[in-house]
């Protein structure tokens, strides 16, 4: 049960979900220095978007057809909510004191949770998510559940696609420029308002895909899932160095592995026997964050703030 390779894989799976969500925090922060605390809920509504598509599909639709449509559903719902939030909640507050958008984000979070709770049919408790059929896959001593296969395929594709977009495309370069020096980016002809929208939309799309992965992994979605997952992903973003997209990915993986290890092995350390297991996993995640921030305040891949000037 507690074999190391299996725990590493568990950590990587968990971590790649954190990483996918963390990208949304880090891209938006990198460009507008805003912590979009509603991002967890943008992840959550994506899960319900995917579920809705599944419920619309005629019974007996194969998963090969359903999965792409569910991804599209999740991405559409997540990006629509995120772009709407940017346009109508955050943009009017640009230039306002930092506290104003922060409070707006928290309000938006609560509103989205309550909206799903109140209006989505039967969403007062968890709603069952469809299963990916098939048997678990065994590679050596490692077992991968069919529900995790989606993540195994989707996470690396998303990461590579994002890296390519940011480094190789024109809009990606405009994004980097806006993050480094917004006024000068404007002097290059970059429409920075549009870049901000793209950052929100891309981050939301990845959160939507992560929500589909969540659904397949845990077999359910619920209106509360955005809170803890958003907080963990935010932790991953800070851990990796907020503003740095590779940092978000690395931070997610480190957090996921640390959590898996703590869950599996903490019990074995003498005197720590009560501090292992799933119930303590979240605590260890935040302990890790605090330790890293004490040693490296800018995060694993972040630059010192002074270097950004």
């Amino acid at each position: 049960m507690h074999e190391l390779p299996q725990q590493l894989v568990n950590g990587l799976l968990l971590g790649s979900m954190y990483g996918l969500i963390a990208i949304g925090y880090t891209m938006v922060y990198g460009i507008v220095q805003l912590i979009n605390f509603a991002h967890g809920e943008i992840f959550m509504v994506g899960g319900f978007g995917a579920l809705t598509v599944w419920l619309w599909l005629p019974g007996g639709t194969t998963m090969w057809v359903a999965i792409p449509l569910m991804i599209i559903g999740a991405v559409i719902v997540s990006t629509t909510v995120a772009v709407g939030a940017e346009r109508f909640a955050y943009r009017p507050l640009r230039g306002a004191p930092r506290l104003a958008p922060l409070i707006t984000a928290i309000g938006l979070s609560l509103a989205l949770q309550q909206a799903v709770w109140a209006w989505y049919p039967n969403a007062k408790s968890s709603r069952t998510f469809p299963e990916i059929p098939g048997d678990s896959i065994h590679i050596g001593s490692v077992t991968i559940q069919p529900g995790d296969l989606f993540l195994v395929v989707a996470a690396p594709i998303c990461m590579f696609a994002l890296g390519w977009f940011v480094m190789k495309t024109r809009v990606g370069r405009g994004m980097q420029a806006t993050a480094q020096d917004p006024d000068t980016a404007k002097l290059m002809g970059v429409n920075t308002d549009r870049v901000i929208v793209v950052a929100f939309a891309l981050g939301a799309a990845f959160a939507g895909i992560a929500a589909v992965a969540y659904g397949f992994r845990y077999g359910e979605v619920n209106f509360r899932m955005g809170f803890l997952w958003g907080l963990k992903a935010f932790t991953a973003a800070v851990l990796g160095g907020i503003g740095n997209i590779y940092g978000a990915m690395i931070g997610g993986l480190v957090l996921g592995i640390a959590e898996a290890m703590a869950t599996a092995y903490m019990n074995d350390i003498p005197g720590m026997d009560k501090l292992g297991g799933q119930s303590w996993a979240d605590v260890w995640a935040f302990v890790l964050l605090i330790v890293v921030l004490l040693v490296r305040p800018q995060g694993l891949l972040g630059e010192r703030v002074a270097d950004r000037a």
């Binding site: 024109r170 370069r173 405009g174 980097q176 420029a177 480094q180 000068t184 002809g189 970059v190």
Partner: peptide, 16 residues
């Protein structure tokens, strides 16, 4: 743009 390559700085000048 200090963290971008020289070539990408020039490319940004041609953004439009």
């Amino acid at each position: 743009f200090p963290r971008m390559t020289i070539e990408n700085n020039l490319r940004l000048g041609a953004y439009l």
